[in-house]
Write a protein that binds this DNA or RNA. Structure first.
Length: 492
RNA sequence: GCGGGUGUAGCUCAGUGGUAGAGCGUCACGUUGCCAACGUGAAUGUCGUGGGUUCGAAUCUCAUCACCCGCUCCA
């Protein structure tokens, strides 16, 4: 299997073959930002399409959505991000280890730090923080901490060209809230009934304290999220359902079983709104061969919809404070909140409730990287190394390459005709330069599953050579049957 | 943000004060009739960026940017 043992090898591969480049490279690069090159753009698009097909197209109970990145600030007040999506961190002066202050344990009780949510940055920063009795988890030094530093995890931007009349907005830190904000719209316009899901793929932005490992953790990233709404009491079954569905999706697209696993979150690791959460992890070859999260499947309960009902009740305060979020607090829930504007009426049981939500949330960039790394292989062929990307046909950036065996005797004419005939149906590539063996190997490196070669025999019996990427085996197929052959083999 | 490391051709790297190099890749022409390894020729460098020292800097020095390994966090 792959001989990519270091992240550097992957970065190099990605650049050399045109999958991923550093953003703004000609200006020295921009931290944490990356661009997808010609092959990478195709690969990533295929990953998105495969997700959409599995999650939306093939299901009768899920519909799609595509929200704006900028949303009303109250969305983030209600979701909790505006107040809580920040960390207060301090550094141990002895060993330079950085720790969130809410994770520090007291010297006296010695208890391990408990998991807590992100903090409210305004109130926390204003508080006096007595760290003199706190223990550094790394070097055990007591009270050697510097001033707490605040990290805001959402990007801010301004709406309105007039400088005197601008509103501060946030770039969304997750696509999920756009789905909750449109829950009512979808209910009213599509005839869906609980249980059903709303799916969305799009960019999100988090001003991470530290980025990591190539495109694994970036400040701008793409999510594929599904919010699946179900009746309270059925949520645990749906949680299991989606756990399996999502795991199998990676396997079906060729991820090797031994590189994929679940990791359940400990109860004290769960976010305050989550009843259960499991990560789908991939064994990336970063340094020590660490397992890293590709996707999280969470039971978010009815938390988000209930929060947005509170948000809707708070709008008067928002207008009165002239949009200053720091001056308002969310209104309490109505006593009959379960009959609120974001509730669902179950015709069969004649009851109204706020649906529970199961959320599979996948990282598109992470998955793309995993598919790339997992497909990479090197093998010995006649004493030389053949490197090949064994992509699942659905993910392969190029489905078929068309070659004339040599650049004469009318072969290029037949080959270009075949190419023109196929490119409307499949992503194809035409190449007539150099030795054919070299062209085969070049396509191996791009992960192209099939090469079609026009030779002398083509003019005699109308057949072409079909060469398979994985086995390197060749067979002859009538040129008129190529389209059907590819369609069947590629399952398109 | 802190500590450690790195930055020279598209990629991998050599080059420790005196005219910028190799392998692979790329391109052209020829050859070639099914698996990168033929022949001939060619292109390609703000030596990450900006200051300083020096007669002279890829090389010494300072700053800065980016990446990698940790700390932290999460899709």
């Amino acid at each position: 299997m792959a001989k990519l043992t270091k992240l550097d090898d992957i970065v190099s591969l990605c650049k050399r073959r045109g999958f991923i480049y550093q953003s703004s490279e000609i200006y020295g690069g921009l931290a944490s930002c990356y661009d997808y090159g010609p092959l990478g753009a195709e690969l990533k698009r295929n990953v998105r399409d495969a997700w959409w097909k599995a999650v939306v197209q093939m299901r009768d109970d899920i519909v799609g959505l595509d929200c704006s990145i900028l949303m009303h600030p109250m969305v983030w007040k209600a979701s909790g991000h505006a107040d809580k999506f920040a960390d207060l961190v301090t550094v141990c002066k002895k060993c330079n280890t950085r720790t969130r202050i809410d994770h520090l344990a007291d010297k006296s009780d010695g208890d391990a730090a408990e998991h807590t949510e992100h903090v409210n940055i305004e109130t926390e920063a204003a508080k006096e923080h007595d760290l003199s009795n706190k223990v550094c988890p790394a070097c055990q030094a007591v009270g050697k901490f510097g001033e707490p530093m605040a990290f805001k995890l959402m990007f801010e931007t301004q709406m309105g060209a007039n400088a005197d009349d601008q509103m501060t907005l946030w770039l969304r830190p997750e696509t999920a809230q756009g789905i909750f904000a449109n829950f009512r719209n979808v209910l009213d316009s599509t005839r869906v009934k609980v249980p059903f899901g709303i799916a969305q793929i799009g960019k999100s932005f988090r001003n991470e304290v530290t980025t990591k490992a190539f495109i694994f953790r970036t400040r701008e990233f793409e999510q594929a999220e599904l919010e699946f709404f179900c009746a309270p009491g059925t949520d645990e079954d749906w949680y299991e359902h989606w756990k399996q569905q999502r795991f199998n999706w990676y396997l079906d697209l060729g991820i090797q079983k031994e590189n994929l696993r679940f990791r359940d979150h400990d109860p004290d690791e769960l976010a305050h709104y989550a009843k259960a959460c499991v990560d789908v992890e991939y064994k990336f070859p970063f340094g020590s061969g660490d397992w890293q999260e590709l996707e999280g499947v969470a039971n978010r309960t009815d938390y988000d919809l209930r929060q947005h009902q509170r948000g809707m009740r708070t709008m008067n305060d928002w207008f009165e404070s002239k949009g200053d979020l720091s001056k308002i607090t969310l209104k309490e829930e109505a006593e009959d909140y379960h009959k609120g504007p974001l509730s669902f009426f179950d015709e069969q049981n004649k009851e109204r409730f706020i649906p529970y939500v199961i959320e599979p949330s996948a990282g598109v960039d992470r998955s793309t990287l995993a598919f790339l790394v997992d497909a990479y292989d090197e093998e010995e062929v006649k004493g030389a190394t053949r490197s090949v990307l064994r992509f699942h046909p659905h993910l392969a950036p190029i489905k078929a390459a068309i070659f004339p065996l040599v650049k004469k005797d009318g072969m290029p004419e037949i080959a270009t005709k075949l190419y023109d005939d196929l490119k409307g149906n499949f992503a194809c590539f035409y190449d007539q330069k150099g030795a054919v063996g070299r062209r085969y190997r070049r396509q191996d490196e791009a992960g192209t599953p099939y090469c079609l070669t026009i030779d002398g025999q083509t003019k005699e019996d109308n057949t072409v050579t079909v060469r398979e990427r994985d086995s390197m085996e060749q067979s002859r197929i009538n040129i008129d049957q190529i389209k059907a052959y590819l369609r069947e083999k590629l399952d398109l």
